[in-house]
Amino acid sequence: MRSNLIYVIFATVLLMAGILVAICLADTVPNAAGVAHEQFNGMQAGGDGAARLEHIGGLAFAFQALLLVLIVCLAALGIAEERRSPELWAYMGGTLLFSLFVWWQMYSGHQAFLETGVTRYFMGFPVATAWQVYGTWLGAIPLIVLYSVGFRKFVFTVEDERKYEQLLEKIAEKSEQ
């Protein structure tokens, strides 16, 4: 069966491009990308976080969610077509859900802070930021585990290695002739 993965990737990128255009056309708010700190030269301040997200919060959330979909699809593209088994897709789906969960926790944690002005801390950082610092980094660890532990099953099997060595031998023979 011919893979449709490249079409999924293309559609995702097109949607992301559309969201970027929508954000560019959205109403702007002053200092949306930061403003010079009133007291300290060289420092930027974020100012009113709720106002900065008012017109584009939902679009930005969707942009990042699509980026997480794109990352998982690209990782799958790196695996030979015949080894993209249901088992692999289940694993990739789990990885995507985990990344989306981290992203949701981060975004909603930020929203909660904007509403209440208070936050709990986890390992040195406000909770929403801790999701960013630790969660985002951990979000791709399942991919690292898949690559390292599943290397011989998905990435470069013993059969692949044999085919590759045969190819090299064939090329060597050809060049000797």
Partner: peptide
């Protein structure tokens, strides 16, 4: 001092 600077999108904002 500035809540946004220490929140996930920092002073430079979400995009």
């Amino acid at each position: 001092d500035d809540g946004e600077a220490m929140m996930p999108f920092g002073a430079a904002g979400i995009m």
